[in-house]
Amino acid sequence: MIGVGFGDLATTVAYLHAANLFKTYTLHRKRVPVLRGVSLEVAKGECVAVLGKSGSGKSTLLHLLGGLDRPDRGGAGGGGGGKISVDGVDLASLRFRSLDRYRAQSVGFVFQLYHLLPELSVLENVTIAAMVKGGSIGASTRGRAVEMLGEFGLGDRLAHRPAELSGGERQRVALARALINTPPLLLADEPTGNLDPATGGQILDLLDAFRNRNSATMVIVTHSMDVARRADRVVRLVDGVVSTA
């Protein structure tokens, strides 16, 4: 296991604490280790960029932190028994429904391929996250979504379908969906990976603005040094293990 140095943040209380994470997938009856003992601490309000090549386990790490998947359990003959706690809550102790609630209330996901729902309009793609979190939505939530989309430059595209938008616009919609519930933890998986530098820069500006306004904690997976430079701290992931940036 390789530890992570936190510099001047090492003394602060970690909002996100991941220790000794292992994850192995089985493909065609062959075990493929993806994470091999990853530990990571992120302070509240901190933005950490996770750099690494394709296949280094960046997305897998993000999925574990977001409660979309669970790390390997410890056992004889292999690693495991890793632990993730967010804001003092051990994710391993959460049952499925509590994990769903954790994702709905505490996590905002942004994906490289946007993952918008094609049948829904721009506005519906944003408000559906609020619906999942809280059931029926009121005028205030809808108003907040409209306002946010206006700020993101999509005020005149509310009724449009994702297929009618450019890549940058789609990513802004995906960002608005991730932020509508004002999550304390934002997990972004290559958010600018499909965008040109200028458009990617706009997305990062929006992320920064949200973080500054809400003191949100962010983990951004990327292989772009431009993105990494805007983070408070960079963590490199090489072959399933973390090396200090």
Partner: peptide
């Protein structure tokens, strides 16, 4: 399938 993954990512439960 991808939409189901998206819904799960934003917090929808399996039952939902």
């Amino acid at each position: 399938t991808k939409d189901i993954g998206t819904l799960r990512a934003i917090g929808a439960s399996g039952a939902g």
